[in-house]
Nucleic acid binder design. Structure first.
Length: 858
RNA sequence: GCGGGCGUGGCGGAAUUGGUAGACGCGCUGGAUUUAGGUUCCAGUGGCCCUAGGUCGUGGGGGUUCAAGUCCCUCCGCCCGCACCA
């Protein structure tokens, strides 16, 4: 018989789905809407198998929901602005636009090859002016609403390339291309006031019930709400400090009596002022600034301080002067950029105090410890306790002391209780070419002037070169020279472009009406489709992209664009696809296709030299452990690849791609094909009436069929694709065992095949269409409803109950479902294995969990 | 450094969320079939004890409970994020 020809079948069904517009979504439907979206890709080149797990998961959800009667929107687009296009331009002398669009063409073809059920009429590319013109308008609206503003902030500056570097381009303090020591520089940049929504973004997290807890927790920590107090320390030499006082923020105002120093950020104005007259301090600050702007770099750097000689007056202790230091671990962006150090009750302060021989005075004594005996060693005490050595706070618990200290500061008018957030405003300026131009003009007379709406889009000029360092927009002969929209005099365009998170913060709304020209999307279409019912993507976006999108949606609502606040009602974060890594003798990485197995040893195919097999790692070009999409689809077909991507691992965990795995998936596909096309018993015609009675085997298999329908449906609802696949394999095994010897076997086999084919439809859509046709159906499977389980067949009359003695399993008993405890108990006590285990000992207690377990305690 | 996660047979993972640990698959072993060649079918497969049966077993250690992979404490290992990669 003919074998399943994946190539032929996949091409055929893909064309048919396309020609019949099976996946195009409309807003006019009486079915409930369902919007499923996978995080859209950056068009970086060519997809490998690891990239498509995400889209396969989304596709299963889309096809499943469609079968369940939903009006499904499942779009795809391209997050097309970004740094790699510029890197390619510099490295290969190819224009970013050319590079990007070529990549898009390749990747679109690859996604289509996988048979993904997208509505391609809604495809968008964010680098198109048709897209980014709308976000320029949004920015102007934000500006008018006070949500966008300019301020100075620090960047990584490469003095050789004359450019700003991304944190990932700074490697051990040096520019990745130039190798030059990176400096921190201050630039005037645009910011979006996400902090205005901090409380709202935090408060709405519990309502995101279909988000993973871990993501909500990460966002909560990122927003980092903390309550405490601001307080001002008078300085002993206001002239030298340039200010009469230094304001600090603390969450531990209760420990003020244990303060032994003040620390200010190297970027604090007072530090800058003191450095003017102190070259050593200036030197110290310069060294701090060499660390780079990433928080990880700052936090892992050795804690260092510099004594300024300045002193600050303790607000509660008359005459006590605390030294003021500049410390590299104090962040200017958080709180006030200055802290007071209480070494006894903060680990970082303690480390600092030990290093610079500052006093350590415990002021919180743990309950039940003698205050006289309590000392601090290498570990700060941060737990609860009672205040000592603390004047008016003595005897209070920590919380009460915080309250009392706060009130006293307020009464003295030197501070107030307050709340701060770790969250900082979103810097959206990038000194880059391949991004959306920020639509403002700088005029010497009028300052910053928004580009009038009628002149949008501010289009990115395409005639640029990358032959010298810096931003090509700066070097363009004409582009930035315009007349001021306000006064008409010569002025300069803003040459910064937006952070690419800007585009991805509203693309999900654009998909609702991607061809809308007047605004980013029609309010009506957005009202219909939003929020996204199920969003799917990697955890690496748990904070930034998702938080920015949540903020953006609120900001858009505030500007009258839409009427939802949360863009994503459901979120699933999928794990990585991993693959073994291979290294040649010389240590260089090898692609999987460069190796082979000879006599049980892994060797290099080219010359038989030994290969070291490394651990599983995320598929990445740099380690060469990638498997190309075309290679897999050519050899096994898209359905086999899809099956493997959904098998074995739950979606939120890593998945191992292996040659054995793909072979196993391929075998199952063929097994299923044979079952339906060459059934063990000839099938009755489609739609034949059910027989009068079913024999034992037929009844058992019918139960299996209906249980599988129920359980698989439940698995898909919960996104347990790996379990769903396991159940489908089990049903396939059960059906294959039918031999036609029992009454109704043939009819049940058809019933089972029909159910099975419909259940595998979302996973292996091409094969399923082919089998649906083979079963004698004229209709398309994609237009066929999801099977329904018969409740009468999903529950068993008897259940197997485990019997334990003292928690150890001794027997299992078949019992009637929901048998009474007394009956179950009697059956258990009569079991020979139980009697033997009891060994005549007195029974103390019997625990009966209905339909599960009986535990006899002796 | 801070934040988040993960850890179950040789391997990927199941376990109705505190109730029979190892579903399903990969691999391996033995057998059958076939014009052996991405075959197919049957049987077996956590460790230890000679089997009936017993005993140990979910990264290590401790605890709560009639009962712990699941809850608590602690330690170890690995992975992800940290604001200009997307």
């Amino acid at each position: 018989m003919a074998r399943y020809n994946s190539k032929e079948a996949e091409t055929k069904w893909q064309a048919l789905w396309r020609d019949r517009g099976c996946f195009s979504a409309t807003e006019s439907s009486d079915r409930p809407k369902y919007y499923v979206l996978e995080m859209f890709p950056y068009p970086s080149g060519r997809l490998h198998i690891g990239h498509v797990r995400n889209y396969t998961i989304g596709d299963v959800v889309a096809r499943y929901k469609r079968a369940r009667g939903f009006n499904v929107l499942h779009p795809m687009g391209w997050d097309a602005f970004g740094l790699p296009a510029e890197n390619a331009a510099i490295a290969n002398r190819i224009h970013p636009a050319t590079w990007t669009f070529e990549n898009i063409d390749v990747m679109r073809g690859q996604l289509q090859m996988m048979g993904l059920a997208y509505d391609w009429d809604r495809e968008i590319a964010t680098c198109s002016p048709d897209y980014y013109r709308h976000e320029q308008k949004m920015f102007l609206d934000f500006l008018a609403a006070g949500l966008a503003y300019r301020k100075e902030s620090w960047v990584n500056w490469d003095p050789v390339e004359n450019t700003v570097l991304a944190n990932e381009q700074v490697i051990e303090g040096r520019g990745w291309r130039s190798g030059a020591l990176v400096e921190k520089r201050k630039l005037s940049q645009w910011f979006l006031r996400i902090t205005a929504y901090a409380e709202d973004l935090l408060g709405a997290l519990p309502g995101l019930e279909r988000w993973p807890d871990k993501v909500r927790l990460m966002q909560e920590n990122w927003i980092g709400k903390s309550t405490g107090a601001r307080l001002r320390f008078a300085v002993d030499d206001p002239e030298r400090a340039g200010t009469p006082e230094i304001e600090v923020f603390t969450t531990r105002q209760d420990t003020l009596f244990g303060a032994s120093f003040l620390a200010i950020s190297p970027n604090h104005p007072v530090a800058a002022r003191l450095a003017e007259a102190n070259p050593e301090l200036a030197q110290f600050i310069a060294e701090c600034n060499r660390v780079g702007t990433s928080e990880a770099a700052i936090e892992t750097a050795e804690k260092r301080g510099f004594a300024t000689g300045l002193k600050a007056r303790h607000p509660f202790i008359e005459g006590l002067l605390l030294p003021v230091c500049v410390a590299n671990f104090v962040l200017m962006e958080y709180g006030t950029g200055a802290i007071f150090g209480c070494p006894a009750h903060d680990q970082r302060d303690l480390d600092f105090a030990r290093k610079y021989q500052l006093p350590v005075l415990p002021v919180v004594i743990p309950d039940g410890i003698d205050p006289a005996a309590f000392t601090i060693g290498d570990e700060a005490y941060t737990g609860p306790g009672v205040l000592r050595n603390s004047g008016f706070l003595d005897g209070l618990e920590v919380e009460a002391a915080k309250q009392a200290a706060g009130l006293r500061l307020e009464a003295m008018a030197v501070g107030e209780r307050t709340t701060v957030y770790r969250l900082r405003d979103w810097g959206v300026s990038r000194q880059r070419y391949w991004g959306c131009p920020i639509p403002v003009v700088h005029c010497d007379s009028c300052g910053v002037v928004p580009v009038p709406e009628a002149e949008l889009p501010v289009a990115l000029p395409l005639d640029v070169t990358f032959d010298r360092p810096g931003n090509p927009l700066e070097h363009h002969p004409t582009w930035k020279h315009v007349n001021c929209p306000a006064c008409g005099r010569p002025a300069r365009r803003e040459t910064d472009t937006f952070d690419t998170f800007f585009e991805s913060s509203w693309y999900f709304a654009r998909f609702a009406s991607p061809h809308e020209t007047g605004r980013g999307f029609s309010a009506e279409a957005a009202r219909y489709w939003l929020p996204v019912d199920q969003y799917i993507g990697g955890v690496e976006h748990a904070v930034l992209h998702l938080l920015y999108s949540r903020f953006f949606t609120r900001a858009l609502k505030g500007c009258g664009y839409l009427d939802v606040e949360e863009p994503f009602a459901g979120l699933m974060t999928q794990g990585m696809v991993t693959h073994a890594t291979y290294r040649a003798e010389d240590g260089s990485w090898l692609y999987p296709e460069e190796i082979e197995s000879r006599d049980g040893r892994i060797v290099r195919a080219a010359d038989g030299s030994p290969v070291a097999v490394g651990r599983l790692e995320k598929m990445s070009k740099s380690r060469k452990n990638v498997v190309g999409l075309e290679v897999v689809v050519d050899a096994y077909g898209a359905d086999t690849a899809r099956l493997l991507l959904l098998s074995d691992s739950p979606p939120d965990r890593d998945l191992e791609w292996s040659e054995a795995g793909i072979d196993g998936a391929w075998r199952y596909l063929n097994r299923l094909w044979r079952l339906v096309v060459e059934p063990p018993v000839p099938l009755p015609a489609a739609g034949s009436a059910a027989p009068e009675r079913f024999g034992e085997s037929a009844t058992a298999v019918r139960r299996a069929i209906h249980k599988t329908i129920a359980a698989t449906t439940d698995d898909l609802e919960k996104f347990h694709f790996n379990k769903a696949v396991a159940r489908l394999r089990e049903l396939t095994n059960s059906l294959a065992e039918l031999d036609g010897g029992g009454a109704g076997d043939a009819w049940v086999l058809r019933e089972g095949c029909e159910a099975l084919v419909r259940l595998v439809g979302p996973v292996m859509p091409h094969l399923a269409e082919e089998l649906w046709q083979a079963l004698g159906h004229e209709s398309l499977l994609v237009d066929t409803a999801w099977p329904e389980a018969d409740p009468a067949l999903t529950a068993d009359d008897t259940v197997t109950v485990a019997v334990q003695v003292n928690g150890k399993l001794r027997a299992t008993l078949p019992l009637a479902r929901d048998a009474e405890a007394g009956v179950a108990e009697a059956a258990a006590m009569a079991d020979p294995a139980v009697i033997r285990a009891l060994d005549g000992k007195a029974v103390r207690r019997i625990i009966v969990v209905p339909n599960r377990i009986i535990n006899v305690v002796v």
